[in-house]
């Protein structure tokens, strides 16, 4: 079972308390009704599914219930870092080579 650090509770808690909520940093357009089919397809259907570093959303379901963002390595399952929803995508990752 993974340990996940909730950036709101500022504690590492067991995976059981959390739910994954898909890829992060996919912004919903403020003018979504006016989006082209292509743009909507990219926004709604296309996901990166990388081997390696992924930016994803988690929810501390059985804790503070907040959604937050996490950086995880899909190969090792290791969490690189977590940060609050709305914060920018980190440009530097601790312990990860470019």
């Amino acid at each position: 079972m993974l340990l996940i650090r909730c950036p709101y509770c500022e504690e590492e808690r067991p995976e059981l308390e959390f739910r994954n909520a898909g890829e992060a940093h996919i912004a919903r357009s403020a003018n979504i009704a006016g989006e082209s089919d292509d743009d909507f397809e990219k926004f709604f259907f296309i996901r990166s599914n990388p081997k390696g570093i992924i930016y994803e959303r988690w929810r501390h379901m059985h804790g503070c219930a907040r959604f937050f963002n996490a950086v995880r390595d899909t190969v090792t399952d290791k969490f690189v870092m977590t940060y609050k929803a709305g914060e920018p995508k980190p440009s530097k990752l601790p312990g990860v080579a470019k």
Binding site: R19, A21, R57, R59, A65, R66, F67, A85
Partner: peptide, 13 residues
């Protein structure tokens, strides 16, 4: 509830 919270927290904060 999860759906509502998701939008409230992340899209319409």
């Amino acid at each position: 509830m999860n759906h509502m919270e998701d939008y409230l927290q992340t899209e319409f904060p």
